[in-house]
Design a protein around this nucleic acid. Structure first.
Length: 721
DNA sequence: GGTAAACACCTTTTT
DNA sequence: GGTGTTTACC
């Protein structure tokens, strides 16, 4: 391999980072400045130039996607398999650590990973068993509380009862949740991190071993780390000067789920010998787009400071469009996309970005009528689908009879006559005698504690599960899955379901068999875990993409959050209105508002060539008409990089005068914004805004034929249509 | 046990 | 207003 390819393709700042001496390094990587490239080349530098064995390298990301990309790019660059290198997500690596040291972590060898849906079910069951009213104590909130504690590294036993009623109750729930999980060998996502931290902290030999092993630790998206993740990194690296982190404070958009932007500042304190390197040259966007991004984000304070620049020209100005309402907004966007395609643009190069998922509908409808293929991101992923989770539960139960959540899930799916009464008795027995549901069921059967009918149904179920376990113990993985899916009655159940839904469910089950066939247990089997167990954990840890859908050329619809890390030639940021974006809940909180601003910054920097920002003057929300102000972020953009456009009539309204009072005035007048009206002479039009009252009341109307006009209501002959 | 009516909800999401 | 979930009833 030509060693020069490691350094040559880089710019000066990137070179500085890649070749930095062995010390703590913080790379502040602006959007589109080549941060993944720096990580990949830094690893290549260690291996090829410094002769570090891949065995001594640890690289951490947040998503499986990022981890996979990093691995394959390293392999491409170095032309060697990166197998012995630990590259993965925080959760994936924590899981791996716990598997290898289950004893030290005080976990059973066959502990199972729960996803958040499983976790929520456990919480619900727990509340019921503790006789806690789940209206007063919403399971979601309880789940949130537990995860928040764990992410701060706090166990129930660490929490003092400060006399607060709310806290006392939560504490009690947290405690029994921990007990239950420990007893059942269940580990939720936050627990993976917390336990991985504890197992190193509490086992000095282990810690020493891993500190010696991981001579170089690299972290992607460092601004998204939470308390426990950072604590884990510190444990491994503090005092060794071998931590290399890449991040961007301006792209921190996950504070609401525990990410600590402060970790960036903490890093500088904890690693005094660190070096900071800024990547500010952007290879993605035009000058106008970068200028907008820079100007916007400058409104935030406590930044580490960064200015993006490009040497590839200004490009087109950013376009602002004020739509009459959300339908007009969708119409406009789709019209522009139609033109883009007609001009030879790829559909997949166009993206519609919104703040909340609910906004996608208008655009979907219009795209549908325009017969433009599109793809909406978000929603349930493959391994999260009900039918898939049911099948997995059968698989789990067949190999671990004591898995209560799985038992609950499928004991009566498909229905087999095991009713609520039988189950309640079973739960009670299980609880009082510290048995699993399976054991309780056996007990009830042996001691004839059930009516003949219930006993019959229940023993039928137990036999089915036992049989499945026996049938499949010697089959290859995908045969096992196939067998279980068929014999469990799930296929049959979904075949009966109403056409559309049932059909895709059956297809998903078939896809599951396929996924099992393709499954390659890439965790080297250091611990004699069966293929099935590896598959089940893989399913929990890597929920997979949406569907295996063919990636045809589609317009991309997604939230601003899920757009992070992506780029498109043509970007629409829609719903730029106060209350929507920034969202209502963030409007009166300075720090949340700053996070929204960073989200806006993320959105803007997704665009490579053309950026459209749209807002509606009237929007139906939750069945009510709203007249929102244009987003404050629009006013924070540089005027010289923006142009306003009106399709139906050309009007120039300076940015600074973008109807600050539309909201209040419009509601008091006789005419509503967006209302259709007819004028004797000018014909049909739509009300844009109103001003004044009584004799002085004026209305601005956009007439289809003659464009925009102000009319005095007292004189104008207007009719509502 | 399966369907319809009533009811609550309504940022953002990965693991 | 639209969706997903619980409840009521057959």
């Amino acid at each position: 391999m030509d060693v020069s390819s490691i350094i040559e393709p880089l710019n000066d700042a990137q070179r500085l980072a890649v070749s930095a001496p062995d010390q703590a390094v913080l790379v502040l990587a602006g959007a589109g400045s080549g941060k993944t490239r720096v990580l990949v080349h830094r690893i290549a530098w260690h291996i090829k130039i410094n002769q570090v064995s891949p065995y001594h390298i640890l690289a951490v990301t947040f998503t499986n996607k990022a981890a996979n990309e990093m691995r394959s790019r390293i392999e491409d660059l170095l032309q060697i398999p990166a197998r012995s290198m630990w590259i993965g997500t925080f959760h994936g690596l924590a899981h791996r650590l716990l598997r290898q040291h289950a004893k030290d972590a005080q976990l059973p060898d066959n502990f199972q990973v729960m996803d958040s849906d499983d976790q929520l079910r456990v919480v619900k069951r727990l509340l019921k068993s503790m006789n806690i009213d789940d209206n007063k104590w919403p399971p979601k909130q309880v789940q949130w509380f537990i995860n928040a504690q764990k992410e701060e590294g706090i166990r129930a036993r660490h929490m003092a009862d400060d006399g607060d009623f709310y806290q006392r109750q939560m504490l009690a729930i947290y405690r029994s949740y921990e007990d239950f999980c420990q007893r059942s060998g269940l580990v939720d996502f936050a627990e993976l991190l917390l336990r991985a931290h504890e197992v190193l902290r509490d086992n000095p030999e282990l810690l020493t071993f891993y500190r010696q092993r991981f001579q170089h630790v690299l972290v992607d998206e460092f601004q998204d780390t939470n308390t426990i993740q950072y604590a884990w990194l510190r444990l491994l690296t503090e005092g060794f000067n071998n931590l290399f982190v890449v991040g961007d404070d301006d792209q921190s958009i996950y504070g609401w789920r525990g990410a600590k932007i402060e970790n960036l500042f903490a890093f500088q304190k904890h690693y005094p010998d660190h070096q900071v390197i800024r990547l500010e040259q952007n290879y993605r966007s035009t000058g106008h787009i970068l200028k907008a991004a820079n100007t916007l984000i400058a409104h935030n304070d406590a930044r580490m400071g960064k200015q993006l620049w490009t040497d590839s020209g200004d490009g087109e100005a950013i376009s602002l469009y004020a739509a009459f309402n959300e339908q007009d907004e969708a119409w406009f966007v789709v019209e522009k996309i139609r033109q883009w395609i007609a001009d030879g643009g790829l559909r997949s190069e166009a993206a519609i970005l919104y703040r909340s998922n609910a906004q996608s509908r208008q655009f979907e409808e219009r795209l549908m009528t325009a017969a433009i293929p599109y793809r909406v991101y978000g929603g349930l992923r493959f391994f999260e689908r009900m039918e898939v989770k049911n099948a997995l539960a059968y698989l789990r139960l067949a190999s671990h009879h004591d898995d209560d959540p799985s038992f609950e899930r499928v004991v009566n799916t498909p229905t087999r006559g095991i009713g609520a009464k039988t189950l309640d008795d079973m739960r009670l027995l299980a609880r009082d005698n510290a048995l699993s549901l399976w054991q309780a069921a056996e007990h009830m059967l042996i001691h004839s504690m059930l009516t003949p009918r219930a006993a019959n149904a229940l023993s039928g179920f137990l036999n089915l599960i036992r049989q499945l376990g026996q049938d499949t113990s010697s089959l290859p993985l995908h045969e096992t899955v196939k067998h279980v899916v068929e014999r469990s009655g799930l296929i049959e159940l979904y075949q009966k379901e109403k056409q559309d839904k049932g059909e895709t469910r059956v297809e998903n089950l078939e896809e599951l068999v396929n996924a099992a066939r393709l499954f390659d247990p890439d965790l080297i089997d250091e611990n004699n875990l069966g293929e099935l167990d590896l598959f089940l954990n893989h399913a929990a840890l890597e929920a997979g993409d949406m569907q295996a859908e063919a990636d045809q050329d589609c317009v991309q619809l997604m939230t601003l959050h899920s757009a992070k890390g992506l780029e498109f030639k043509l970007v629409f940021m829609v719903g730029m209105e106060d209350g929507l974006f920034p969202s209502q809940q963030s409007l009166d909180d300075a720090s949340r508002l700053q996070e929204e601003r960073r989200l806006c910054y993320v959105g803007i920097t997704r665009a490579r060539e053309q950026l459209y920002l749209t807002h509606a003057e009237s929007r139906r929300l939750y069945g009510k008409d709203n007249y929102p102000r244009p987003s404050r972020f629009l006013r924070e953009l540089p005027v010289e990089s923006c142009q306003e456009i009106r399709l139906r009539a050309q009007v120039n309204r300076p940015l600074t005068r973008m109807k600050p009072d539309a909201g209040t005035v419009a509601q008091t007048g006789r005419y509503r914004i967006g209302q259709a009206v007819r004028h004797e002479k000018f014909g049909d039009g739509v009300v844009l805004q109103t001003e004044g009252a009584g004799d002085q009341e004026k209305v601005q109307i956009n007439f289809r034929r003659v464009g925009i006009k102000w009319l005095m209501l007292a004189y104008a002959r207007l009719d509502a249509v």
